[in-house]
Each structure stands twice: as structure tokens, then as C-alpha cells.
């Protein structure tokens, strides 16, 4: 394809038109509408009435619990996922022979692309009354309640988002120059020292990407707390479903959404700044 000539410019515009329409009408405009709604008032029948007030934002403390749960459990879940994912990514990238590497990586990623709904409800089974608690009764431990606790939600989070954490870390470890590791051990560095001074710093971009992806998706999570938190451990996402679909308080729901998006934007920009500082490329692929 040549560049620069007039008809080619028109072709570029034509090829981008459908995408631009989508971005405009399904991303930019809706976000603006939400922003406008968040300064409005609630109509008597539910829905939205015009106006300009900060009342909705003033009301945010009434959903404080949802924000607290999210801001506490989302980072904790991200950290737990990282702790579980890192050794696996390390093993796959540096300890597995070429032949099995791709197969095992695919096995990690496949669950992520299957229904999170179905996979999460499997845990209602496992953690519910007739699952692990029944097994524990067999060995004499009684009265254990697992479902509808923060712990259950955390298990669901690690289970659901592990693939998303493993993949970027795997990619950064895979790209790592293996001769550096050899050099370190040749120079008498202990395995621990090699890991702390070479492997870990060089896999930082992967860790950062994984953590950011998981954290952002967790901020908007609805299903896992709905299934495994049973109304006791609820996230902002659960509050939003309630506000938009049940109590139909749209302006307040809009204010909650805007707050959520702002928190996410702050996270992303902090991440970007961190990445800029380390001056390393990032991975484009989500696969």
C-alpha cells in the first residue's frame, strides 16, 4: 500500500469511519451522558430529571460500605493473584521445555475465555454447605462457614483472574535474557540473589501490567461478590446494579459510576507514570 496520495487518504478515512462512529456513540457520548446525569436529580418515577446539583456526590457516603469493600478486597485480591501467579509464570517461562511451554500456557489462558459466570458458580458448590464444610465435618471440624465471606470472594477472585495475571508475567520472564542469569550464577550469586537482583526487577513490567489489568477489572466486578459474597460482601458493581436496575436511582448511580471511573483513571495514570520511569515497553496483547 502506497502512502501519501489523495485517494489513499480518503481510503484511510473510510476505513476508520465505522470504528469512529462506535467510539463516538458507544464510548464518548455515553460517558458524557453519565457525567451530566451525575449532576442531575432523581425524577419522581425513577430515572433522571435535569438540574445541576452536587447532591448525588454528597450522597456517596450512603454507599460507603461498597466502596470500602471494593477498595480493600480488590487490591488484596490483586496481590493474592500475583502471589499465586508469579511462581507459575516463572515455572512456565524458565523451567519448562519448549515443547510443553505453549501447551501449558494455553491451559492457563483457556479458562479466562470461558464463562466467568459458570466458573464462579462452581465455587458456590465447592464452598457451599454441602461442599468443603461437609468434608470437614467428616474429619471432625464442624460449623465452618465458607460461602458469603470475604475469604470466599477472594478465592473467587484469584480463581477468575489468575490467567490474566500469569500471562503478562510469563511474557516478561520469557523475554528475559537467560545469559544474565548464567552470568550471575557464574559470578557466585546465590539463586536467591540472582532472583532478587535480576529476575524480579526484569519481570516488573509484567507484574505491573498484570496487576493493573486485574485491579481495574476487579473494581467493576459484580458476579463474584454476587455469587460468593451473598449480599454480605458487596462491591461497587453490586451497588450499581441495584441503583440502575432495581431502585432506579439513575443520577445517584451515575455519580457512583463517575467516582468509580475516576478512581480507575487515577490508577492507570499512576501505572503509566511508573512505566515511563522504568522506560520499558509494554505488552500489547491481552491474549
Amino acid at each position: 500500500m502506497g502512502a501519501g496520495s489523495k485517494p489513499n487518504q480518503w481510503l484511510t478515512v473510510a476505513l476508520l469511519t465505522p470504528t469512529s462512529i462506535w467510539f463516538l456513540f458507544l464510548l464518548i457520548l455515553p460517558l458524557i451522558v453519565i457525567l451530566v446525569f451525575s449532576f442531575g436529580e432523581r425524577a419522581a418515577v425513577g430515572g433522571y430529571a435535569g438540574g445541576f446539583t452536587f447532591e448525588q456526590y454528597g450522597n456517596l457516603p450512603s454507599r460507603l460500605k461498597a466502596f470500602q469493600n471494593t477498595m480493600l478486597i480488590a487490591p488484596l485480591g490483586t496481590l493474592l493473584s500475583l502471589i499465586v501467579a508469579y511462581p507459575l509464570a516463572y515455572y512456565l517461562a524458565l523451567r519448562v521445555s519448549r515443547r510443553f511451554k505453549l501447551l501449558l500456557l494455553v491451559l492457563v489462558i483457556v479458562p479466562f475465555w470461558t464463562s466467568l459466570l459458570v466458573r464462579t458458580y462452581a465455587w458456590i458448590f465447592i464452598l457451599g454447605g454441602r461442599g468443603i464444610p461437609t468434608l470437614l465435618e467428616f474429619i471432625g471440624i464442624e460449623g465452618v462457614r465458607l460461602i458469603n465471606t470475604p475469604g470466599a470472594v477472594l478465592v473467587g477472585i484469584v480463581y477468575g483472574y489468575l490467567p490474566l495475571m500469569v500471562f503478562p508475567i510469563f511474557v516478561s520472564l520469557e523475554k528475559l535474557d537467560k545469559s544474565l542469569l548464567e552470568a550471575s550464577s557464574d559470578l557466585g550469586g546465590s539463586p536467591f540473589k540472582t532472583f532478587m537482583q535480576i529476575t524480579l526487577p526484569l519481570s516488573m513490567p509484567g507484574i505491573a501490567t498484570g496487576c493493573m489489568l486485574v485491579f481495574i477489572l476487579l473494581m467493576g466486578e459484580f458476579l463474584i461478590p454476587a455469587f460468593l459474597g451473598g449480599g454480605k460482601v458487596f462491591f461497587i458493581g453490586n451497588a450499581l446494579v441495584d441503583l440502575f436496575l432495581q431502585s432506579r436511582n439513575w443520577p445517584f448511580g451515575a455519580a457512583v459510576s463517575v467516582t468509580l471511573v475516576v478512581i480507575m483513571l487515577i490508577t492507570v495514570s499512576l501505572y503509566m507514570r511508573m512505566m515511563m520511569r522504568s522506560k520499558t515497553g509494554r505488552d500489547e496483547s491481552l491474549m
Partner: peptide, 8 residues
């Protein structure tokens, strides 16, 4: 997150 796309 999907929930924001849904709501918007």
C-alpha cells in the same frame, strides 16, 4: 470494566 460499558 463491562459494567461501566453496560451502564453508559
Amino acid at each position: 470494566p463491562g459494567i461501566v460499558i453496560g451502564i453508559a
